[in-house]
């Protein structure tokens, strides 16, 4: 029996091995200095904007929205990309690749380690907004988001993180994160035919309007399903990036992509 076996015990379950790694990747993201940009940005923007009417319910509703939805996705995309590409950038990849943890499993752990805490953060933010909404009476109705719209928030944050991982896997070079960001922005613009639709990273919900027209039109709950599908697509594409896994990429990713596109089509008015 090797020391590894004495430490791990007789073939610990994959879920346990994966859980440990997911935890470590989540910690890696949480400690990334790029994420530390969010609090000062939120503090500065909210103190400049919303406090003129006092720190009332509307102010806090807006502050949570700004913190979680307005700047976070953009910053999360770059932070996740840097975390996912750190082994390559620091030339540690070869050393890490000769461990029993396959590249596929390591990437899956990275996707989950990045997406789950972000989704959790989004859920907490959405919950806080719902709570403020339930307790306050002085927030203007057009500022309030429906439950279906709030439910999009976890997926927007997780999706931004997964997009960062996807960029790190498919564009493994300096500037890959920027190309991912530009492509995702232009993609939104082209798909919806509007410039402001490309600024998904500032989370325009299905009810938010810009010059009278919602940049992301459609039925909120179907939009949630569509965002969940995009997250799943990004995960599958990142995990099966290696050339030897392209059959699996097609077999697993194909149906998920088809379902996502179908939901995306159905959500449109």
């Amino acid at each position: 029996m090797t020391v590894v076996e004495s430490v791990t015990g007789p073939r610990t379950a994959i879920s346990r091995r994966l859980a440990t790694l997911i935890g470590r990747e989540a910690r890696h993201l949480a400690r990334h200095p790029v994420l530390w940009l969010i609090p000062p940005i939120v503090v500065v923007t909210t103190s400049l904007d919303g406090a003129s009417a006092g720190r009332n319910a509307s102010y806090w509703y807006g502050t949570v929205f700004v913190a979680a939805a307005f700047f976070a996705p953009l910053i999360v995309l770059f932070a996740a990309n840097l975390v996912a590409s750190s082994a390559r950038r620091s030339r540690a990849e070869e050393m890490l690749s000769v461990t029993p943890t396959t590249d596929t499993r390591r990437t899956l752990a990275m996707c989950l380690g990045i997406a789950l805490p972000l989704a959790g953060t989004g859920a907490i933010a959405a919950g806080a907004m719902a709570l403020i909404d339930s307790r306050a009476t002085n927030i203007q109705a057009d500022e309030l988001l429906t439950t279906g719209e709030l439910a999009q928030l976890p997926f927007v944050l997780a999706g931004a993180g997964l997009l960062g991982v996807l960029g790190a896997r498919w564009l493994p070079f300096t500037g890959g994160a920027l190309i991912t960001f530009v492509a995702a922005t232009l993609g939104g613009t082209v798909v919806f035919g509007r410039f402001d639709s490309g600024i998904w990273w500032m989370w325009w919900s299905t009810s938010t309007t810009f010059e009278g027209v919602p940049p992301v039109p459609g039925e909120p709950w179907l939009h949630v399903a569509y965002l969940a599908g995009l997250c799943a697509c990004a995960t599958v594409a990142a995990v099966y990036r290696d050339r030897t896994q392209w059959t699996r990429l097609a077999l697993v990713g194909g149906p998920i992509l088809a379902a996502t596109l179908a939901v995306g089509w159905l959500q449109l008015p």
């Binding site: 791990t8 030339r91 000769v98 461990t99």
Partner: peptide
């Protein structure tokens, strides 16, 4: 394995990096 041009996650401490490799070596306890 120690590669010729071994790089490290430079933000990690020595303990954290070796612990990370230990996790990849599936030491879960």
């Amino acid at each position: 394995y120690l590669p010729q041009d071994a790089g490290f996650h430079r933000g990690f401490t020595v303990f954290e990096f070796i612990d990370y490799v230990a996790i990849l070596k599936e030491m879960t306890d």
